[in-house]
Design a protein around this nucleic acid. Structure first.
Lengths: 110, 110
DNA sequence: TCGATTGTAAACCATATGGTTTAGTGTTGT
DNA sequence: ACAACACTAAACCATATGGTTTACAATCGA
């Protein structure tokens, strides 16, 4: 595992520890959205949502692309895959029915 | 999923966000250990390790059982399984890559 | 052009986190 | 009995986090 990956895992798990951010990811799983659109249903300010999106971006979980004056956010699953890959190394502790090929792919091609 | 699980997910992901705690889990994957034993190779105080273990216990990731004056810690994978379960709902966002890699391996290395 | 819209930056606040040192509570071995 | 051991609790400190309000920059539409 590349050393830099450790810091990324830190950021990824820390990003996932907040329910607002997990909610944003769940929303983005249905498709891209602008910052305003993502913030609209939430009970916090637009500024706070912007900060959450910055955290998610630094964790490698979302991409932000500015087009004009709006910023469209999309799910960037690499961070999620990294976190899942780390957890997969512990899968034997709770799941006997493991797909060995899947584990092999995670391990050999992270 | 039970509603209360959300707070547990918060604690679980937050616990996993610290490299010292991930190291403790990796160590515990090889078998149980006392607090002193777990702390010995680490460059921080025993007190700090004890706090980390409290965090891991509250996150449902380790069990602590006192026997005499020593406390033996064991991996409790339910929290890890919960986190992996949450991530699994996003697996379709990166599984395509795994599938194509699988097809590549089958095609190039039959 | 100019006001409205979209988003970020800055400053601020309360609380949480990760570490320390020092005390304290049991437990063990001699 | 009692000193050493294993761990936890308490107090403390520096920094991080999640939220606010206000200010700012950039873009769009009329």
């Amino acid at each position: 595992m590349v050393y830099n990956r450790v810091e990324t895992l830190d950021r990824t798990f820390a990003a996932l520890a907040d329910p607002t951010r997990r909610g944003l990811l769940a929303r983005l799983a249905d498709g891209p959205g602008t910052v305003s659109h993502l913030a609209a249903p939430l009970p916090i300010s637009l500024v706070a949502v912007g900060k959450h999106l910055t955290v998610l971006e630094r964790a490698g979980l979302v991409d932000r692309t500015r087009t004009g004056r709006t910023v469209v956010c999309t799910l960037h699953a690499q961070g999620l895959a990294d976190a899942a890959g780390w957890l997969a190394s512990y899968q034997r502790f709770w799941d006997d029915r493991i797909d060995s090929l899947h584990r092999y792919l995670i391990r050999e091609h992270p």
